[in-house]
């Protein structure tokens, strides 16, 4: 792309929203991420408030938005119907509302997502060497952004959640037969939920904080072949692919919810029984 005739280029000291001499499509990537993340937030908020069609009778499929289901009406619930502390008079209960804060908090404080949303939503900056709308800047030194330093604590919870989703993926191989018995089988939902766990593992274990905790914090990894160095190298491999896993796992978790919801509403039979037990 070249400059159109008569284009007025900003001088070396020009500032302000969009001030740049860049002639490429610098706005395309932030716009794309804005649409993707905004779309995800709208869909996941809608799905979280539904409180229904998040599991599929006859299977062990449960939407990742609703797992772990601490209180709820499905067979997956851990403690009963509704939490005693929930203000039912002002807000209808949905199991997702209790838990979605953890994965949302993990992604919100994630170093990779910070880059994406500071650019796409906050224009701080929109793209490299492009002017910003505000003169004031506090960075991550003050509230609320100083709280992003707690990323590792959300990571601990995210690891637990990912393990629970892994358990859900294993359970998704078990189905209920028409006579009430149990059987091992495989369905499209099994594949979707298993892949969901794999992608979330790839994202969670490639976290920058995790890389620090498993070895990055040390000035020396110890002797050649040490566990610390092996762990750090493995997490580094995932960390180098963190943007890929961050985005693909986000899309896949939404796709998993859509699939479970469609199956729950339609009553489609998506699996093949391998053997009964």
């Amino acid at each position: 792309m070249s400059y159109a005739p008569g284009t007025v280029l900003p001088g070396p000291h020009a500032k302000g929203l969009g001030a740049t001499a860049r002639s490429d499509a610098w706005w395309a990537a932030p716009l794309g991420f804005f649409l993707l993340l905004a779309g995800f937030v709208v869909y996941s908020t809608w799905a979280a408030f539904q409180g229904a069609h998040y599991w599929v009778p006859g299977t062990n499929y449960i939407s990742p938005f609703y797992s772990p289901e601490l209180w709820g009406t499905s067979p997956h619930a851990w403690f009963g119907a509704a939490p005693p502390f929930w203000p039912l008079a002002i807000l209808q209960y949905s199991p997702a509302l209790l838990i979605l804060g953890i994965p949302a908090g993990f992604r919100l404080t994630c170093y990779y997502y910070r880059k994406v949303y500071y650019r796409a939503f906050w224009a701080d900056p929109t793209a490299c060497a492009v002017g910003e709308p505000r003169n004031d800047y506090w960075g991550e030194n003050f509230l609320p952004l100083i709280l992003w330093n707690a990323h590792r604590f959300v990571l601990y919870l995210a690891i637990i959640f990912t393990c629970i989703l892994g358990y859900d993926a294993l359970k998704s191989f078990i189905f209920t037969t028409k006579d009430g018995g149990h059987a091992i089988g495989i369905g499209i939902g099994t594949v979707i939920l298993t892949l969901n766990t794999v992608l979330l593992m790839g994202y969670t274990l490639g976290c920058h904080s995790f890389r620090h905790l498993v070895g990055g914090r040390c000035d020396s990894f110890g002797a050649k072949g040490s566990t610390t160095h092996s762990l750090w190298s493995g997490v580094t491999w995932l960390n180098e692919r963190h943007p890929f896993f961050a985005m693909i796992s986000l899309c896949w978790v939404a796709a998993s919810d859509v699939y479970v919801r469609v199956l729950s509403i339609s009553g489609w039979h998506d699996h093949l029984i391998l053997f009964r037990f």
Binding site: Y111, R114, K115, Y118, R119, D124, P125, C128, A129, Y137, G139, E140, N141, L145, I146
Partner: peptide
């Protein structure tokens, strides 16, 4: 270092 908001430019 808290001023850095990880935009990777």
């Amino acid at each position: 270092i808290g001023y850095c908001n990880i935009t990777k430019c």
